[in-house]
Simulated scan of single mutants.
Amino acid sequence: MAADITAIILTKNEEVNITDCIKSIMTIVKRIVVVDSYSTDKTVELAKECGAEVYQHAFENYAKQYMFAVQISQIKTVWTLRIDADERLTPDSANELEQLCNGNMNTDVAGIVLRFKKNFLGKDLYHGGVYPWKKMNCYKTNYGAIEDRSMDEHIVLSQGRAIEMKHDCLHFDFKNLEFFVNKHNWYSSRETVDYFQNLEKAKGKDELDFKTWFKMNFYYKLPMGLRAHIYYLYRYYIKLGFLDGKEGKIYAFLQAYWYRYLVDAKIYESKKMGTRYKGIGELK
């Protein structure tokens, strides 16, 4: 018997992923809702064939798209599962999630942290600080909501505590290096918007979560080139990214010297040129 879960999946041109994603969760959830930002491939058709409810909505950013999904779904189940089309539950992790949801219907547990194993260039990465990649993707519907921010949005709980799963889920966000670079260029604009928003929050004495506070008060205080270099050294040497071979080196290099440095360059550009990135719209 399925657990009392509604799953929400946001999509755009995910025909290569959506069927496997839905099949990995369909036996443990009561309802699957797909919110699609006008795919031009077979994503919508395939999602419907798998039994999902499908809605379409123009994409602004991930947080606002997810808020729309929650609103349009009018969720009645005790639990909500946020899962991306390129993510999968394994038989073991699906069984564990089902048991945890069923076993905590009336406890103070309001969130469940899923563990993900990332695959890059066809290789599972176990080092470099990327394993396990953790996200609180399952939460009690009445006690969780997504942060309204341009980048790095999380589900936050209004009450209760979170527990962590023991079995791994799978993450297949890598399509090819061209897509990877384009996606991180898109991410970097959103991160730039987030930087200036957090700067204003700090000036206004607004409370920041620890990760954001650390980035604003330590990471961004370092010289632009130095912080990307330190980030690479941290990922590749201190967090043992070199143990993942060539794939680990490429991943660490692109994360630091492509993505993190690009964010820094866009922040510098914005300050020097008096312009601002909007950070809205979908990945092209």
Rank of each mutant, 00 (worst) to 15 (best):
L199S: 04
S24L: 04
G274R: 10
D86G: 04
E153L: 05
G279N: 07
W79C: 04
P223F: 00
I163Y: 06
L46R: 11
F179Q: 08
D168E: 10
F180Y: 09
T6R: 10
L283E: 08
I18A: 01
Y187V: 07
L125R: 13
F210A: 09
Y232E: 03
R115T: 01
P223D: 00
R276E: 02
L97H: 05
Y236H: 11
D36T: 14
R161H: 09
D92P: 04
D86L: 03
T40E: 15
I250S: 13
Y268I: 07
K205M: 07
K175L: 03
N198A: 04
A47S: 11
C50M: 10
G281L: 07
T212G: 04
H229V: 02
T90P: 06
K239E: 01
Y257D: 06
I280N: 11
Y220E: 09
I5C: 05
H171G: 05
K211H: 09
A47R: 09
T77C: 03
W186S: 10
L283K: 12
H229I: 01
A7S: 13
D194W: 00
G281W: 02
M26T: 00
K211M: 12
G144R: 07
V78D: 12
K117V: 02
Q74L: 12
I83W: 03
A110Q: 07
K266R: 15
K140I: 14
I155Q: 03
Y220A: 00
V109K: 11
Y261K: 15
K76M: 14
K76Y: 04
A58G: 02
S24I: 03
R82A: 12
I230S: 00
L10H: 11
K12A: 08
E53R: 01
I267K: 15
V113E: 15
E200S: 09
F242T: 04
I32S: 02
L97N: 11
I28T: 13
F210K: 10
L100A: 11
T19Y: 02
D41V: 00
C21I: 01
V16E: 13
W186T: 07
R235K: 08
F68G: 02
